[in-house]
């Protein structure tokens, strides 16, 4: 019998809202939206956690500039505080080395992280997801039944092709979708808005491509001042975040 599943509910019970930042496609800026969302909520004095579930290519730690922080062992693991955010990632255990995992290993990693992480009371837990509909997405749906989804795409038809599939499965499974954010836009087209509305999902708005963003990676204080972050904040306001 697998004992870890029994404790997950207890670990998450003092978390008011879980928001999963997801996309069907990689490279659309999920980690930046997830980290930006977590930073934004933390600046509003909310208690915020950020869980990076991209076990092959975690990147939230790079965005937040996590270097020396490490979880504390106390009847499990207490995530370190990074810029007011309780932050947990596989990177604490891989030391940022290449991570060749097979499917079942991913599920085991997620289960272990959820079973041993002591988040304590949080207003929000933000989950930074890997792309697609693999183990990570299915496990979040399985273990975090009340999670809401914030979906990220770019303006590309290629990205939207995969994002549509994610939206369709979320709709089929009756998961709450906060809306779709169109990230890194370069021109003012309405293709994504139109596609999202066809699925009867809220379209939240655009975040224009920001060429100052790269210099702010690893510096949350700078990140909060970027045009991209300001656009993200106005998008988030539409859903009262």
């Amino acid at each position: 019998m697998e004992p870890r599943t029994s404790v997950i509910e207890k670990r998450l019970k003092s978390i008011k809202r879980i928001i999963t930042v997801a996309s069907g496609k990689g490279g659309v800026g999920k980690s930046l939206v997830a980290s930006g969302l977590a930073l934004h909520l933390a600046t509003k004095s909310h208690k915020v956690g950020l869980l990076d579930l991209d076990v092959y290519g975690p990147s939230s730690h790079i965005i937040l500039g996590v270097t020396t922080e490490y979880p504390v062992e106390e009847k499990g693991l207490i995530p370190p505080n990074v810029q007011g955010i309780s932050f947990m990632s596989i990177v604490f255990f891989t030391q940022d080395k290449p991570s060749p995992f097979r499917g079942n290993d991913i599920s085991n990693i997620i289960l272990e992280l959820l079973a041993i992480t002591q988040w304590g009371p949080l207003d929000y837990l933000i989950i930074d997801m890997p792309p697609g509909l693999g183990e990570e997405t299915l496990d979040v749906m399985k273990y975090m039944k009340h999670s809401e989804f914030l979906v990220v795409t770019t303006s590309s038809k290629v990205a939207m092709g995969s994002v549509s599939k994610l939206l369709k499965i979320l709709i089929e499974l009756k998961k709450p979708i906060l809306g779709v954010v169109e990230n890194m836009t370069m021109k003012n087209t309405s293709y994504i808005e139109h596609e999202v509305q066809k699925l009867k999902v809220p379209y939240l708005g655009k975040i224009p491509f920001d060429n100052t963003l790269e210099d702010a990676i690893g510096h949350p204080d700078l990140l909060l001042k970027t045009p991209a972050m300001k656009h993200l904040v106005s998008v988030l306001k539409k859903i009262n975040l």
Binding site: M1, P3, R4, S6, K10, E73, E74, K75, G76, L77
Partner: peptide, 18 residues
């Protein structure tokens, strides 16, 4: 004390099974 977290999961799981 990661052992505590695992012990807790064993106890909760046993109670569920019971």
């Amino acid at each position: 004390m990661h052992e505590w977290a695992l012990a807790e999961s064993v106890i909760l799981s046993a109670l569920e099974a019971a």
